[in-house]
Design a protein around this nucleic acid. Sequence first.
DNA 1: TATTAAAAGTGTATTAGTTACATTTAAAAA
DNA 2: TTTTTAAATGTAACTAATACACTTTTAATA
Lengths: 234, 234
Amino acid sequence: MIKIYSKNPKFYLAVDCIIFGYDIIEKELKLLLIKRSFEPAKGKWSLSGGFVQEEESLDEAASRILFNLTGLSDLYMEQLYTYGDVNRDPGSRVISTAYFALIGINELDSEIQERNGAHWRSISNLPELIFDHREMVDRALTELINRIKVHPVGFELLPDKFTLVQLQNLYEAIYQRKIDKRNFRKKILSMNLLEKQTDKERETSRKGAWYFRFNEVKYKELTRNGFFFNLTVS
Amino acid sequence: MIKIYSKNPKFYLAVDCIIFGYDIIEKELKLLLIKRSFEPAKGKWSLSGGFVQEEESLDEAASRILFNLTGLSDLYMEQLYTYGDVNRDPGSRVISTAYFALIGINELDSEIQERNGAHWRSISNLPELIFDHREMVDRALTELINRIKVHPVGFELLPDKFTLVQLQNLYEAIYQRKIDKRNFRKKILSMNLLEKQTDKERETSRKGAWYFRFNEVKYKELTRNGFFFNLTVS
DNA sequence: TATTAAAAGTGTATTAGTTACATTTAAAAA
DNA sequence: TTTTTAAATGTAACTAATACACTTTTAATA
């Protein structure tokens, strides 16, 4: 059996990770980029990636790369697309599977960031990226915009406790447009997935804004019963 | 530069194609399957696939495999997902990128079908498939169900001229539920994307049903102007 | 040639969901 | 006590989705 397969060529396989973070202060969606540490394109801005190894699946390779870069495991992560053009990497033929991940920007400690040469860059002002990485980012962003409408993935980008203002700001940052405050609140609250806390966020106003938590257990239960998350407003 | 890459392992890369066809008579969605011609799992039911070669992209490999099997080029085709588990293929480690394609079931001549050992099998009664092919099919079906709601891909599964009854039957076959006839017609016709022909289909009724054509040029123009296809009814 | 049978074709009223929009409340700072 | 700033709140108008049953066409048959 190996005989038959072995007529065929083999390829380097890479995984590249599009890591989104949300800056709750600047109200901006950001991307974690690194300065590439090896040739070709050494020193250029790049997604963080790496080669798939013998004894790991693609998902495991993506988790390993994410963990090495962030020190975090169990991140929200999803396979996006596989890029297989013949000359996409000038170093050699490499097929790359892109994954996108969502993390809270403050979960990442700056020590790890510096050691890896990782930097958060605003999505609206990205530097030039190597190879086809810009294409990967564009696809990931499109996917994020579509996904956040119908899946509760926005909460992955926020702290456990967040205010409705913060949640709305996140949606506005991703959709790149203003949303009507009353309609947004009406819709998200009507799903009964947010639990009002007893404390308030007091940094940004005198009045303070109530904290909420997303109830994941309830979401899963509702989903089993045919509920569909939907947050398309205004 | 090659020096650095060359520390890393290489892998066989395959492409597997989930080819959907729609049987307008039996009102059933079907899948084009083959009896595998080589070990391992020789003689078992399988998606049609093949290994990626040195000088072709993934998309080109998928097109080649589709062309070899069907004799058709320019099919509707889309990358679905990449399967990279370590032991997914018992023959050797192979990473496989799945593509799904939509074709009119009658576009395929039976001579080519027989030569390739290809068979249309009803989606609701699939035989056991090798490796993780069943998982691929399930994902493709989910993707098709989602896609046909918001993209005009159903027309790829029908002849150029089709009746509204046939179109509705197709949607019912994919959604696996009945749709209200008047609401369905109202919605699809209100998009102004179908052009009524001057002739009727006369096989299935005495009265005959008007033929329509999908106007792709108009669809593209509307899309540029912010139009979104949507056919979620009843 | 009148009748029958079978599928195609058609409209409206009700309900549900989405949108637009402005004032009040809370609390710290002056 | 007043001012300032952001958070919080409800309703009416509009639009979209749904439920629903009869008429039309035409070939086959009596």
